[in-house]
Each structure stands twice: as C-alpha cells, then as structure tokens.
Nucleic acid binder design. Structure first.
Length: 276
DNA sequence: TGCCAGGATGATG
DNA sequence: CATCATCATGGC
C-alpha cells in the first residue's frame, strides 16, 4: 500500500513493491539522472530538479514540497498504477516471469513528450553514456539555468531558432538536423504532441514519423515514455531477435495494454542472457 | 585499437 | 516489401 509521508523538507514514499529507484532511473528510459559519489541521485525532469535516495520499499525526494510531489512527481513516477497486479499477471506466464525477474524494480516513468522526443532522436544508433552527454550539453547550452549547474530541458521554440552550427558543440553527429526538424515541426504546430498523445496508435505512430529521424523505434519510445501509452512496444532489431527466441510467433500487440512494461523486462532479460 | 551503439534514411533488388 | 550502405561520434 502506497504511503506518502510529509517529512519536510523531504517527501518519503514507502509501501511500494516491485520498485527499485536505480533500476528505474538508469534503465535507458530517461537520460538526465546520475548517481553522485555520496549515493544521492540527482536529475531534472523538464524544469524540475529531483534529488532522490532509494529505500527498500520506495524512495525519498529531498527538498521537495508536498505540493510539488502531489502535483507532479506522483504522476511522473506513476505511483498509482498497480504494479503488484502487473507482476502477478506476468508471473502466470513462465517466460515473462523469467524476464521480469531480471528487472523486477523497473517502473515506466511518465515523462514530458517533447523532452522524450528529442532524447530518443539522440538515442538512435547510440549508447546510453554518450546519449546522456549529448542531452546534458543540449540543456547546458540552451536550457534555462535552475540551480547548482542544473538546467531545464530547452523548449521547442528555443531550439527551432538555432542552426546546425549552433548545435555543433553537442557533437551529436547527423542527429543535429533531426533535432532541428523536430523543433520546427513542434513549435510551428505541424505536429501537436498533445493531440498525438490522444490519437489511435497507428495514427499516432504515423504522425510522429513525419519528423525527420523518427522511425518506428523512436516513435514507440515517445509514445511509451512520453505520452503514457503503455501499450506501445519499442521493439528494435535486437528485441525482434529476442522476441523470436522467447516468444516464437507472438507479436507485440499480443502483449496487450501493458506491452511497454513487458518490453522493459524482456529487454533486460535479453541483455543479461545475451540473446540475439 | 577497433568494434559497435536499444536507428533512420534513401537507393536499389 | 526486404535488404543494404551510410551517417558522426565516442564509450569501452
């Protein structure tokens, strides 16, 4: 049972099963969190700073008001979703049960759509350490300063005014042009992310893929992590091989409304077992 | 040192 | 529709 404790200046969240803060923050769904040497986790979601510590059955949000927690972080961490029920459901399937055991504490974060879009454009043919570096340079260069060397994620209008030369310091390679196209389409209203989030899946996928550099994988990631569409299934080539090995003949949509959560467990299992 | 990264694009069978 | 070289850059 979820317990939210107001212990100013902190907010303490307890009573969570199947929740592991490091797994959740560092599984490749978000790129702005890092662990300090003292063990504290620091990150930024949109323009909100987070300082977090893991607990056995939850986490602590340091220097966080109850208003900020209830108004934002509770939804961001999707704390009102019944992950126990999800794990019970997966436990009933022998293959999914094995996959879930490899990452039992991952929770899907409900991130900002624009930030997710740009982050996963950057993620293509790339690896997490460098993705984090590029995203961080993007925020340092063009995001509003918050505090203690932390910067907000720059909005679409800000980036739309830039050129590839301006983005050169990011060292993002060919992805720079993709970022600019996304910024222009979003800021000009050619693609309206709030409307895309409400579209039927196939229509939403097509809408997102009108953006240069957004293909099937990035579109699914934006839908899953940035639009709360947990039925999205960001399956890449590697995952397809894992899927064929683990679930022969099964298609992503066969996983139902929570395909994205299942995908996270399958992905981590496939990495640990080096399937593919 | 070289391989390859949770891809997308555009050209070509 | 399936395959394939190509892309910039740097973690490891």
């Amino acid at each position: 049972m979820l317990k939210v404790i107001d212990q100013a200046p902190d907010v303490i969240v307890r009573g969570l099963l199947h929740f592991d803060l490091p797994q959740t923050l560092d599984c490749g769904q978000a790129f702005r969190y890092h662990q300090q040497k003292d063990g504290l986790w620091t990150g930024v979601a949109g323009s909100r700073r987070a300082r977090l510590s893991p607990l056995a059955d939850g986490f602590v949000m340091h220097d966080c008001t109850m208003e900020a927690f209830q108004g934002f972080w509770r939804g961001y961490f999707d704390l009102d979703r019944d992950y126990e029920a999800i794990h019970r459901q997966y436990a009933a399937d022998p293959v999914m049960a094995r996959c879930a055991q490899y990452a039992p504490g991952i929770r899907i974060l409900r991130q900002d759509a624009w930030e997710t879009l740009v982050s996963f454009i950057i993620s293509q043919n790339n690896h997490v350490p460098r993705i984090k570096g590029i995203v961080e340079r993007l925020c340092q260069g063009f995001g509003k300063p918050l505090e203690e060397e932390l910067y907000a994620f720059p909005d679409a209008g800000r980036l739309a005014a830039l050129s590839e030369t301006d983005l050169a310091p990011l060292r993002a390679g060919w992805r720079a042009g993709y970022i600019l196209d996304a910024a222009r389409q979003v800021s000009e209203g050619v693609v309206r992310l709030d409307e895309v989030a409400a579209m039927p899946m196939d229509q939403a996928r097509k809408a997102l893929q009108k953006i240069k550099g957004v293909g099937p994988k990035v579109a699914e990631c934006v839908l899953l992590y940035g639009m709360g569409r947990l039925e999205a299934f960001p399956m890449d080539v590697w995952m397809k091989r894992a899927m064929e090995t683990l679930f022969p003949g099964k298609k992503p949509e066969d996983f139902g409304d929570l395909a994205g959560i299942a995908q996270q467990y399958i992905f981590h299992y496939s990495r640990m077992e080096k399937i593919g």
